[in-house]
Design a protein around this nucleic acid. Structure first.
Lengths: 197, 197
DNA sequence: TATTTAATAAACTGATCGGTCAGTTTACTA
DNA sequence: TAGTAAACTGACCGATCAGTTTATTAAATA
């Protein structure tokens, strides 16, 4: 063995970080490995040394993004007492750059044929934790009667999840960060009104 | 003169119809002209006789989809009296196949670099009518006090628009059509609750 | 110091991409 | 029926794609 310094692991991380930026901006299919090479300043051979395919690189990127999102989330959410407060935090997460629009790319990737069933399942499992955050908040809110609804927690979670992820299209409105966050906040307000006690 | 006009127009329409199916399924970048050729059973040369580029074919597809959506909408919406009823119809439109998930593809396309500003503006104008439907309903509801909110009609419309377009990701839940529609309906219910008098 | 091997770079490959083009077919007219 | 123009075809093009090969480097061990 040689070079166990972790230098390689660092390179791998760098590739993934840079790849994430381009995947987010252009989607899976429109992103070329050449582009990733140029942006990361790491040779093609090195990229393929660390990742056996574009697909694997993408999956790794999604996985890391999902993990760090979850970690960042736990860090801030644990300080909040009510489900209502957590929903507003969720809005801020999704409005800010901190969130990973990479989950927005996943459906596009899933649509491109020839994807093995195993890979699809893996992807779903990668996105699951993000959805779970929604579900847990809704469930908590219903349990302690912060929220009241004739609908089940699962449906409500899916609806809120759709709203927050769907709101990424408002990027075309050209709002500044402040106005952008306000829009997300308004979405939460309306939603809360709709299920509040 | 020769070959009575109209025959070509029919072919053009056929190409666009078939292309739409594939664009919807795979997105813009992942769709190849070869695939469109195979699926439409029309030669490559003929496709390029009618459309000067893949981009133009895509824009044409979006335009036609937007037009027919609007026509279909007017046909059914005009029979409804209240804004509330119209929102439920909107939910049905988005839940059913009748809607055009092509508007979901537009952001992906907009992200792929090298798109001229003029083309971007054209695209925004193509999607605008669909958004206008939302805005008009919300505005109508606020005017006749079906809805009550401290937020302006524009923001509310954007939020609802985001919710309904964002809900396309629930396709991965594998629901049947009935359950699918119910989920959309629930979304409208919560939303309505949130802004209702 | 010699050996080992993870790590890197760069040149390369075959397949596929969007797009072109020379030429053919078709349906009409003069 | 010869001529014409719109409609159409399929072979082909250069560019770019994901991925491979090969040679070299540098850091660890023995």
């Amino acid at each position: 063995m040689a070079r166990p310094v972790g230098q390689g692991e660092q390179t791998k991380k760098r590739i993934a970080e840079k790849a994430k930026v381009i995947f987010e901006r252009k989607g899976y299919a429109a992103t070329s490995m050449e582009e990733i090479r140029e942006y990361s300043q790491i040779s093609k051979g090195s990229i393929y040394y660390h990742f056996k395919s574009k697909e694997e690189l993408f999956l790794y990127t999604v996985e890391k993004a999902s993990e760090s999102w979850r970690i960042e989330w736990e860090k801030e959410a644990n300080q909040l007492a009510t489900a209502t407060e957590k929903l507003y935090l969720l809005a801020r997460f999704y409005a800010s750059d901190m969130q990973n629009p990479i989950s927005k790319i996943v459906p596009e990737y899933m649509g491109s044929e020839n994807i093995e069933e195993m890979v699809k399942e893996k992807l779903i499992h990668l996105v699951q934790p993000e959805y779970d955050v929604f579900y847990e908040i809704i469930n908590e809110g219903l349990r302690n009667q912060e929220f009241v609804s004739n609908k089940n927690a699962e449906d409500i979670s899916h609806i809120l999840y759709s709203t927050l992820t769907g709101m990424s299209i408002t990027q075309f409105l050209g709002y500044d960060e402040e106005k952008f966050y306000l829009l997300y906040q308004n979405a939460i307000e309306i939603f809360l009104n709709g299920i509040k006690n």
